[in-house]
Amino acid sequence: MTSLMPFDPERASSPTRWRRAVWTSLGLVYLFVWPASTVFGHGHSTGESVVRLVALLSYAASYIGLIIVNNPWTGITTRSAYVMLGVTAVLAIAYPIVFGANWVGLPIYLGVACAMTLPPRWAGRGVIASTALTFVMCTALGAEGGTLALLTFETLTVGLLMLAFRTSRILVVELREARGEVARLAANEERLRIARDLHDLLGHTLSLIVLKSEVATRLADRDVARSIAEVNDIEAVARQALADVREAISGYNQRNLTDELENSRGVLAAADIEVTVKTSGAPLPDQLDGLFGWAVREGVTNIVRHSRARTATISVHRQGATAVLDITDDGTAGEEPASTSGNGLRGLGERVALSGGTVEAGPRADGGFRLTVRAPIAAPASREPAGEPAS
């Protein structure tokens, strides 16, 4: 139970407070049995009866006032609630002393007030203190043994019962808030996944479209046929991008390593980059195959965008129980620190981390840039398939 739970104004709105006051005040009916039954009897003068009536009403008013200013379901005790609880406690002590043993039942309501007002970690102690007060008051005012036992037992049991009820309600409130927080975090996570998947899907394709558009523009004056071919390629790539987005939305898109390696040859060739692809070992599991497919796409996209390289190498092999993807180039992107911290590599790192792997990206000692992805072949279960974008 926490006393640091944020206060919810809706749960403490005026209609809710008054509704709570009406229902809780029904318990005050016992005041009209004892000590109310003695207000106008026992040979009291009219003045004494009026004083006792005013005292009884003031105690009822302080108790109801405490209910109105306090919201027990938040676990937070406000300053006004402490003040009203203090007033109720003073009256519960003073009135039995002033008016006699017929008023020793007032601490029962004080026990309930403590259970419903004090911070949860102090409420139980408040109930015990109210029980002790009932016992001391009954003893000091000469209450009969049966009355002493009955009132002491009622103060303890009713107070603990209300504390248990309050605790269960606070837990329900906390559970609802926790569910709301989980839903909010899940929505944020889903937004991050969608952003990452859109980057992975469209970043590569749009880069290729820009590259082929530049080639088509340069060839327009001297080689119309090849320029038209490049434009046709742009159309094909755009259609494929549209299909990829539709598949991603439907949740069926799966990046295949073999397809991505083959696609990378055409992309790099279009950028006049000579590429060497090396693969060894048995085929990777489907999840890891998809993960490395995304990594190849991201690595090739970065080479085309940033590297100004002449050659590139893509290597896939195994090291014991670990699969390794290594993408290198001889370009100048390694001289630009920002190239290692883009959204694509960050998103790739998140994907690989979900599969228990690591990503290393940075300049090589002999020039160029290196992207290395390592992941266990027997990958742990992750929250999302590594090669499958969010639906």
Rank of each mutant, 00 (worst) to 15 (best):
I249P: 09
V69D: 10
S315W: 06
D8K: 01
I194A: 15
H199T: 15
L284M: 04
A386T: 04
L211K: 03
L161S: 06
F135Q: 13
R239C: 03
T328G: 02
I68C: 11
T332F: 07
Y30R: 01
F165Q: 14
A132S: 09
E214R: 14
I67W: 06
E214P: 00
A386K: 04
T24M: 04
V54I: 15
P9D: 09
R383G: 15
G266P: 07
R310N: 00
F153G: 15
V231Q: 08
V90K: 01
G356S: 07
M84C: 12
G331T: 12
A338K: 02
V182T: 15
R20F: 10
S168A: 07
I194D: 14
S264M: 07
T167R: 13
T322V: 15
V231S: 06
E298V: 15
I93S: 03
T279N: 02
E384I: 08
R310K: 02
I97G: 10
S130P: 00
G47H: 07
T131Q: 02
K278N: 13
A270K: 08
G126D: 05
I68G: 08
L150V: 11
T258Y: 11
A129P: 00
L57Y: 02
A81E: 11
F153K: 13
L345Q: 10
V69N: 01
F369V: 14
V304D: 08
A55K: 12
L151C: 04
T301L: 03
S315A: 15
A220G: 08
G367L: 03
R297D: 09
E336G: 08
S130N: 04
I97A: 13
V300L: 01
A129H: 01
G387L: 06
G145I: 10
S13G: 03
R346G: 07
G347C: 00
A94C: 01
T46Q: 13
N102K: 15
M137W: 02
T157L: 09
S58A: 14
F369E: 05
R374D: 09
A236P: 13
N71I: 05
